[in-house]
């Protein structure tokens, strides 16, 4: 786990203090809206500049949003000249006008979807050779991406609806993601982790009735590798229970074929 030592005094903008949405045109991402920025508890100077950056890999585009006092959207927030639009993340920065020092930042923000339900696992269809799926953990700050092999006929539908796919793939995906989160990245808090996607997945697991435990926090006295592994297994079991209808459907399909 990378240490995040903050000697600079810059403040952290929490994920729930900003709302960013993609604007789509015929299913293609066109631009974005930066709707909400609740900085009331951050005590930022009125004349500090607010910027939003859209980024992924070597793509980076910055948009000025006025100042803390005079928050105003730029004329255009077009993203059409950026590659990898589906995977773009956002960064919100508040910068001291004269010294150009960063006063507050939120990084690795995934846009909220219009329905307010943000997918926690972006999916990309790619040619993966002879593999059915793989997980892409490119950067610590950005959420993992599930890559599914586009060579498989009708794979878009299979991934969404096929009970076998649900049973054979998604529990292992969940297992690998939690494993990476707990043992590779390391969680720094179970209630308010700094990495946004950790937050999302802890919420997701909590939503299934498996509460995060202190044993998951990597750099702490309470960290317990064996207990953390057990927690991951419980999460996978809860997930499989939640989607037991797919398991049942798969069994029934097998019986019909006999």
């Amino acid at each position: 786990m990378k240490r995040r030592l903050n000697f600079t005094g810059r403040k952290r903008i929490k994920r729930d203090q900003v709302t960013i949405n993609f604007i789509k045109h015929r299913d293609f991402i066109d631009s974005f809206n930066f709707i909400n920025f609740d900085h009331s508890d951050l005590e930022l100077p009125a004349n500090a500049c607010v910027y939003v950056e859209a980024y992924y890999r070597t793509e980076l585009k910055r948009f000025p949003f006025g100042t803390i006092e005079n928050f105003s959207a730029p004329q255009s927030t077009s993203l059409t000249d950026m590659a990898y639009r589906q995977n773009l993340k956002f960064r919100v920065l508040v910068v001291e006008t004269r010294s150009k020092k960063i006063l507050a930042v939120a990084d690795g923000i995934s846009p909220d979807s219009p329905s307010d339900r943000r997918p926690i696992l972006p999916v990309e269809f790619k040619d993966l050779g002879n593999r059915v799926w793989e997980l892409n953990f490119e950067e610590e700050e950005t959420s993992p991406i599930l890559l599914i092999n586009e060579r498989i006929p009708d794979i878009h539908n299979i991934a969404k609806r096929d009970p076998s796919f649900f049973v054979y793939v998604y529990p292992f995906v969940l297992h690998d993601i939690l494993n990476h989160m707990v043992f590779v990245d390391g969680i720094d808090s179970i209630t308010d982790p700094q990495i946004e996607w950790h937050h999302d997945w802890l919420d997701f697991v909590s939503g299934m009735g498996v509460q995060p435990k202190k044993c998951l926090i990597k750099d702490s006295d309470s960290h317990d590798q064996s207990e953390a592994s057990k927690w991951i297994e419980q999460a996978v079991e809860a997930f499989s229970d939640r989607y037991q209808k797919y398991f049942q459907a798969m069994i029934m399909k097998g019986e019909e074929n006999q």
Partner: peptide, 9 residues
């Protein structure tokens, strides 16, 4: 880059 907004410079 930990202190300054390099982009603005």
């Amino acid at each position: 880059e930990l202190t300054y907004d390099i982009y603005s410079l």
